[in-house]
Design a protein around this nucleic acid. Structure first.
Lengths: 348, 348
DNA sequence: AGGGATCAGCGAACCGGTTCGACGAAGGAG
DNA sequence: CTCCTTCGTCGAACCGGTTCGCTGATCCCT
């Protein structure tokens, strides 16, 4: 069931079979049909390893998965799904690589052993060895997110700075003066995750601009952490009337914390942030948020990568997305119901 | 940077380098160290395609992903993560295959082109061509879920029948007499998805056993569908006091529907079902549910597959899991608060 | 009718590993 | 001092494709 067998049964040479399949040289109609018949009869499919070895392309792209042991968020799932789908449309398979604890043994395998033609990296850090390494080797890769030096690279990113700022302005416009920021886990912030950093920056600057009183928190990627974080927020400053979060996985916990504290959303407390639409819709009241376009990002990343693979010398390209805030039901005017300490919220 | 280059620089033959790396024949310490030095200097890694071609193993397993265009649930995400992780521990990579709309073009590619040594299939149907096909070819595969003829196959599954029944008994013990069942989408039920069918069976039989009045529904895999479904449940029978769901993605919508209808959980209405623990914890009140052990299932599936790959003639093995119900906060005694129609719930 | 394109198909080399059989050197037994 | 193992290494064949260069046949043009 290899190409030689097909050739023998069709009464032609192996090369003719190869050309009939690839179309890279002319083959007479008569011969092609004869070959095709044999192939259909035997259900022959060319061996991927042999083909990859011969022409140096695996038709596979690597998707570098978030660190193992972490909690995965819904956004990541949408993202993986869209990458797989888009890749399939371009006739690529997707190989998953956990960018695991021992840094990147598996990552090195993908590249060093030439298992993939190119790679898509998630969870980018502002200073990212993996990215530096790939850039140095000019390995075809596309990042989901930007490092601190984004111009020379290929990526599709979210303008976290602008999104966090937009959330702040939205709340400020509603009259909120004391708001909290719920970031990704401390560990990720320390590690330099770009979304955590840029989001924090955008939040802080916009808040300063509007003269707001703010507190910023880090929070584990799960519901219990979200609940604990919210308790801490209200403990630190009971006059807080709103929060902005980047932490999708903690959202349910934040809501529960509010419910337990007796704060009704959005009457007593407003919540907003950057969250995939599908997840914003699962909470009650539905979250007013900048909808993270995970599926679109996955598709764009694959398209950039395919383009880069087809044109190895093309100049870097990228997409910076900044989806608008979708108004749902979790924000409202800063109410009189909030037990604000009078005077202290006029110090702007 | 291939094995010949290493051999030349180390002053040995290509085969000696190969043996030094694989350890399949003795190589003198002196020679091995010399070769290792050259390899370290050049950062050489053997080409995966060449190796796969030569020894017929790709060291890759295929993970057949749920149909494209569908909504992915949290359970699937945990599952994928754990498969990737467990596979990495056994030195396997994971190739994703969307078992897409055009049935299984990509699936055929994986197998026919020998891209993978084995496969893990998700979203099994009671009658599943893919499984039949793999069984006929004796292709090493492990299913997440059972077909109608499970004994001859390798799988790890959840005892949906028992789990749904346990939910019913839990509710019946609390005094609920009129309960609803919220299944996966109609399309999946029609297609013969095993979880949807076995869950429904278990629910129906247990309800009959306890003499309960029940209604069963199908529901889209998203929050808005969940909300709509709940409205319909209360419209069809306002005296309903509890529901059981297999539909993780609709959970948020079900809760919202209850909130809008003014039914307090668990005082006026109890909710339970089969849901991954992490997602059961995101809703408020936290869901009392049979915790779907997604991560464990992923790990077990990989272990079965690795075992099958190592022992091609081993007899079929499988694991049937039936996690207990975790008591959280979403169920309570059938209250007097529920507007039950007197008499009609005594008809057992 | 002769000469240069064009077309179809063939054979061989190559991609980068693995593995088998052979062979020389060293070591041990008789 | 032979003879037989064992050890370490080498060369060659092989896995299953792709691709290059060549050859014969056909065709067109003058």
């Amino acid at each position: 069931m290899n190409i030689g067998e097909i050739a023998k049964r069709a009464g032609v040479s192996r090369s003719t079979v190869s050309y009939a399949l690839s179309g890279k040289r002319a083959v007479s109609d008569h011969t092609r049909e004869k070959i095709q018949r044999v192939i259909d009869d035997l259900g022959y499919r060319p061996n991927a390893s042999a083909r990859a070895l011969a022409n140096g392309r695996t038709n596979t792209i690597g998707l570098v998965f978030p660190p193992a042991g972490d909690h995965y968020t819904g956004m990541q799932l949408d993202f993986i799904g869209s990458v797989v789908e888009a890749a399939a449309a371009h006739d690529y398979d997707v190989l998953l690589s956990p960018s695991g604890v021992d840094s990147d043994r598996s990552f090195q395998r993908l590249l060093g052993e030439r298992r993939v033609d190119g790679a898509i990296l998630m969870e980018i850090r502002l200073q990212d060895d993996r990215v530096d390494h790939l850039l140095a080797e000019n390995f075809p890769a596309v990042c989901i997110g930007r490092t601190a030096q984004p111009e020379s690279d290929w990526w599709v990113g979210l303008d976290h700075t602008a999104l966090a700022a937009a959330c702040v302005h939205h709340l400020a416009d509603l009259g909120h003066r004391r708001i909290a920021f719920v970031n990704r886990p401390e560990r990720l912030l320390r590690a330099g995750y770009e979304s955590a950093h840029r989001g924090l920056d955008g939040f802080t600057k916009a808040a300063a601009e509007r003269g707001l009183t703010v507190r910023t928190y880090t929070c584990g990627d799960d519901a219990p952490s979200g609940q604990a974080c919210l308790e801490r927020i209200l403990y630190d400053d009971p006059a807080t009337t709103a929060l902005v979060t980047l932490n999708e996985a903690a959202l349910g916990g934040l809501y529960r914390g509010l419910a337990h504290a007796g704060r009704h959303v959005p009457r007593d407390f407003s919540v907003t942030g950057v969250v995939a639409a599908r997840w914003a819709e699962t909470v009650t009241p539905q979250l007013t948020a900048a909808d993270m376009p995970a599926a679109q990002m996955g598709r764009l990343a694959v398209e950039l990568l395919v383009e880069r693979l087809d044109h190895p010398d093309a100049p870097p390209r990228h997409h910076l997305l900044a989806p608008p805030i979708s108004l749902r039901a979790s924000t409202g005017p800063a109410g009189t119901a909030a037990p604000a300490t009078p005077g202290s919220d006029l110090n702007a």
